[in-house]
Design a protein around this nucleic acid. Structure first.
Lengths: 210, 210
DNA sequence: TATTTGTCGAGAAAAAATTGAAGGAATTAA
DNA sequence: TTAATTCCTTCAATTTTTTCTCGACAAATA
């Protein structure tokens, strides 16, 4: 009987409220209200508020990494640069599909708690590994290491900004677009940036002489 | 008798702890301990925990806008593109000087509370106005409006990512550098990006045909 | 029918925020 | 110098908020 309607209702409500008010800012009563279930259910399902958080976040990352790994497996025959594009597309896609949770986790991740550190070790290390490897494979050895590192940072920045400045982005850029259209457009923007940063501008000394 | 040592000690401690554990995550006791003052002082100085927050954030933004306005005034005789560079430099400089508070505010800003909405109206609207105007002046009318908007979003993204991915950035990029060196280097990176995005790549249809 | 599964309300227990009274230190005015 | 005033700090008590547990009950399931 997994994912009974109520359990799922709680998770959905929690995602929305955590996104809106932060983890500490929302009480289990808020969640129960929003989900139209009794407060005690939350203890019943997840033991504690903390348990609920861990369940939601763990789930999020498990799925996230599964998507990434699946994409990398499927694009094994493509060129490194195509592979990178596929990866970026998958990542943005997933984040967009889990918009609220993405925003919430991104925010809470910059805190310094035991839980965050655990997540960093178990999941973010992997994410980082995949992105880094795929990016470096695509870039090749044409660019100096130190600058490559900078580019990687910038890429990672681009993968998260929509979920940090989401107030800006939804109003001014996304606008009437659906999530799907946003994914397409934004993936293209990142692709263009890579083309420039890594390939077009190679002759500029700033890249080699960094 | 403004900014008595104790009052300042409280603000400093609060900045550090809010940065580390978030607003709701830190209790007034924590703050009092860290600042080595009595708990009641906080009520005394700022009325409430909320009051302390508002005082710190308001101060931060007042100074921030003052810096920006001063820079714009001083660079009135420069070319639009130089003006933009001066603005970017000032912004990164200020954020780096108030590193912890910057990170904290950036994170908390993505919440949805009355206070955040007030800040957005009173301060962020102005910030946005200055950046937008300066950027658009620098870009001129060579680029299509819709794409200009996208570029502006990206620029704003670059102005905040170091304070969101600060865990990544401090370890891998900043490293042994001092804040000052980071400011210099990063301002240059943004400048390079602008040169590319706005000017170098103009012939590409992606910019005009967006 | 017996058992598991989910829902509910009350309230204990803990944690956090705030208040008020009291006193010391520094500053100002006489 | 002394007295008055204001500013700052502390402690203890109170209030408010929040989490979590418990036992009863209903519904589904086997």
């Amino acid at each position: 009987m997994k994912n009974s309607p109520s359990k799922q209702k709680v998770i959905n409500a929690a995602s929305a409220l955590f996104f809106q008010k932060g983890f500490h800012g929302t009480s289990v009563r808020d969640i129960a209200d929003q989900a139209s279930v009794n407060v005690a259910s939350i203890s019943y399902y997840f033991n504690s508020k903390q348990g609920l958080l861990e369940y939601a976040v763990t789930n999020y990352y498990e799925d996230y990494l599964k998507s990434i790994e699946s994409t990398l497996r499927q694009s094994e025959l493509l060129t490194p640069i195509e592979k990178l594009q596929a990866l970026i597309s998958t990542i943005i896609q997933y984040k967009q599909n889990n918009f609220q949770l993405t925003c919430f986790i991104q925010r809470e991740l910059s805190l310094d708690s035991v839980f965050v550190r655990e997540m960093t070790v178990t999941y973010l290390a992997k994410e980082n590994f995949y992105i880094r490897k795929t990016f470096f494979d695509a870039v090749g050895s044409q660019v100096k290491n130190e600058y490559k590192q900078y580019l990687l940072m910038q890429l990672k920045g681009m993968l998260v900004t929509p979920y940090i400045l989401h107030n800006d982005w939804k109003n001014q850029v996304v606008g009437e677009y659906s999530h799907q259209i946003f994914v397409k457009k934004y993936v293209k923007v990142i692709k263009d940036w890579i083309d420039f940063a890594v390939f077009d501008g190679l002759e500029l000394d700033k890249k080699v002489a960094y």
